[in-house]
């Protein structure tokens, strides 16, 4: 089937079998191998990408269902030598060891900043009706869909905290 996706700002036409996931379209049809295939079953988050601004698992999405949608992958954030603030913060804070989960972690954090800006609560928010606080506990809960088997979580959290405003977080609302 012929579909058109806007990938990192550019319209891309692909001719695919309906079984093809968004993840496989990126990796096999568009040579965008930044999004990683970890479990391929929605359990690890390595394939996280933004679809129309929201973070989703690319491995559990049939590309034909996303005809016309806007996709942002890790390649859309920065390049070697021109890293986005969050990418640079992952390097600075050792937010990885093997690096396989990193693109998914970064894309998930991008989506999460936006969810904070919209005031979405989480499982650990004390008050459902109040603006959430941008705390480490909130970050950990909201990032639980991204596993890091090297367990670089402290560096990941630090990178996400450090670059939040540069990446567009507008509502930190400190508890103190």
């Amino acid at each position: 089937m012929q579909i058109t996706l806007t990938v990192n700002g550019a319209a891309r036409e692909v001719d695919i079998d309906p079984r093809t996931t968004l993840l496989d379209v990126m990796r096999h049809h568009l040579d965008l191998t930044g999004s990683k295939k970890g479990c391929d079953h929605g359990q690890c988050g390595a394939c996280t990408m933004l679809v129309n601004g929201r973070r989703i698992n690319g491995c559990l999405s049939l590309a034909v269902m996303h005809d016309g949608d806007e996709i942002t992958t890790i390649e859309g954030l920065g390049d070697p030598g021109n890293l986005s603030p969050l990418q640079a913060a992952f390097v600075r804070n050792d937010g990885y060891q093997c690096g396989y989960c990193t693109p998914g972690q970064i894309m998930s954090a991008k989506g999460m900043y936006d969810e904070f800006n919209k005031g979405w609560p989480s499982h650990v928010s004390d008050d459902l009706t109040a603006e959430p606080n941008f705390t480490t506990a909130e970050i950990k809960e909201r990032m639980s869909g991204n596993l890091c088997r090297c367990s670089a979580y402290p560096g990941i959290c630090k990178a996400i905290e450090e670059s939040a405003e540069e990446e567009g977080l507008t509502k930190r609302k400190a508890a103190e």
């Binding site: 929605g42 996280t48 973070r55 698992n57 559990l60 999460m112 499982h123 869909g145």
Partner: peptide, 12 residues
């Protein structure tokens, strides 16, 4: 709802 799945899955 917030106790279920992950941020990515809840978005879909």
């Amino acid at each position: 709802l917030l106790a279920g799945a992950s941020g990515q899955l809840r978005n879909k």
